[in-house]
């Protein structure tokens, strides 16, 4: 059944095999839609499900932060500074589940609110980078020539020096802030998408279906968007899931350096930054919990990315 070979992960919902000399029987194979197959594959695997649950919880925390958080994350209370986690007050009740920080703010509420910035920055940075990289990559691959050269040289320049340094430089000049951070992190990632999109486009450009689209009068824009893009998207989505993880890590590092977002906005990296003064005094909780939050979020994204890669490209399974 040579004609039943899968072409890519998504466009194989229905595979029709016309009868010919080799296969005298007409076949119509219907595969379940991609989300159904994804769901089944997820259910079979243990870790990705756990990862998805963790991410769901973090996303829930971020969206409903105002109703979940027991306290105002910025309410300071100097008499309640550095209360240990799970410590009961004189009435025997635990007010601060994860303790308080050096300014007497509730650590649990700050971590809940911190999820907002971490997730938003991670996702939006990937959207900026992915959109930019995919557009430039498909254009470079499809058009070729001078445009291709220029885009790829730009990519080389960017790859040739450690990006975090340029990010530091830009943020020192522009000052901290979410709206400076997102484009900086996004631009830091475009090269990966562009290179892969370009490679994939070059390999798709000469295929029959592109030619067919051209024959029925589709213009370049339509060919790129409707014919090529859906077929180059799979590996890009895998990269995107890993890149959300690395954007969250980068945001945390930059916030840790005081370059991420202004200190009034609680973020995981920012809470860690503020915990630095307490570490040498042996106060471990303001440093432990936001770090755990970052670690489990990033870990979940990485596990999910791994699963996604296996799912979209079965040849790589277990590698």
């Amino acid at each position: 059944m040579r004609s039943l070979i899968r072409v890519s992960a998504w466009n194989n919902r229905k595979v029709r095999v016309k009868p010919d000399a080799a296969h005298p029987v007409s076949l119509m194979v219907t595969e379940p839609p991609v989300w159904k197959r994804a769901g089944r594959s997820l259910l079979r695997a243990k870790w990705p499900i756990l990862a998805l649950v963790i991410l769901g919880v973090v996303a829930f925390m971020a969206v409903f932060a105002p109703s979940i958080a027991p306290k105002d994350p910025n309410r300071q209370s100097l008499v309640e500074r550095l209360i240990e986690p799970m410590k009961a007050n004189e009435n025997g009740e635990i007010v601060y589940f994860l303790g308080t920080d050096g300014l007497g703010r509730d650590l649990w509420s700050r971590i809940i609110y911190g999820a907002q910035v971490s997730l938003a920055v991670g996702v939006m940075a990937v959207m900026v980078g992915g959109l930019m990289g995919t557009t430039l990559g498909v254009l470079a691959g499809y058009r070729g020539g001078l445009l291709d050269d220029i885009i790829m040289r730009l990519a080389d320049i960017q790859l040739a020096f450690p990006f975090i340094l340029l990010a530091i430089m830009v943020l020192v000049v522009l000052g901290p802030g979410v709206w400076n951070l997102i484009p900086v992190l996004g631009i830091g990632q475009w090269v990966t998408y562009a290179r892969i999109a370009r490679g994939q486009t070059i390999s798709q450009r000469e295929k029959e279906y592109v030619e067919a689209a051209r024959c029925i009068g589709a213009n370049d824009r339509r060919i790129m968007l409707r014919a090529i893009l859906p077929n180059v998207l799979a590996p890009l989505i895998v990269i995107a899931s890993f890149n959300v993880a690395s954007a969250i890590l980068a945001e945390a590092s930059l916030s840790f350096l005081g370059l991420g977002v202004p200190p009034t906005v609680p973020t995981w990296g920012g809470i860690l930054n503020e915990s630095r003064d307490q570490i040498l005094a042996g106060k471990w909780w303001p440093a432990l919990f936001p770090g755990l939050a970052i670690m489990f979020t990033v870990l979940s994204l990485n596990i999910l990315g791994d699963w996604l890669r296996d799912f979209l490209d079965p040849r790589l399974r277990g590698r």
Partner: peptide
Amino acid sequence: AMFGQSIPSFWLGIMLLLSVGLQ
């Protein structure tokens, strides 16, 4: 290895400092 790729390095540093160094 998956964990190793998900730990923010500066946080790992702080945790090492607290446990191996201070405790």
